[in-house]
Amino acid sequence: MRGKQFLDRLTKRFGDAITGSNLEALDPWIEIAPDSIAEVGRYLKTEPDLRFDMLCDLTVVDYFEPDPKKAAKVSWQPHLEVVYHLWSVPYRVSLVLKVILPRWKDDRPGSLPTVPTVSSVWRTADWHEREAYDLCGVEFAGHPNLRRILCPEDWVGHPLRKDYEMPLEYHGIRNR
């Protein structure tokens, strides 16, 4: 099965929850509405002829250009993309899912956007979502243990955001 067939299948089952796709990309991806991601994931994992039982990677890409000169030239609006790379062990095929989120919840800088967790579908997501929360600043609603994983627990900010600024000082250690 290839990208087109997955898309048809998902559109038939979930309808409006499938909000876009790019089948010409190197790794064809399908865009899912944030609220349905866990449901779609569970469907892809349990359906006997799909069986996407392995979540290879979960990551977040921040689309934001801090430089105002360059920002005028970019073609996209600032947003975050949560990217799910799935792999089916029995059928040896891969699939990419994407969820588009605003950079800040309700456009209030500092309040993190939310997406439902998929850690109940794939347990790999447990640590990966913690990492995404830690480094990229996305909150995963319903995650059992959403704490920072790589940075210290009292770290401020989310380093992989494009507008992140390194704190001047951390517990008396000069950073810049």
Binding site: T59, V61, D62, W127
Partner: peptide, 14 residues
């Protein structure tokens, strides 16, 4: 724009 490394040991340790 973004470089990401998915670590195998990360998952194995989890």
């Amino acid at each position: 724009w973004r470089a990401r490394a998915r670590s195998s040991s990360f998952c194995n340790l989890s």
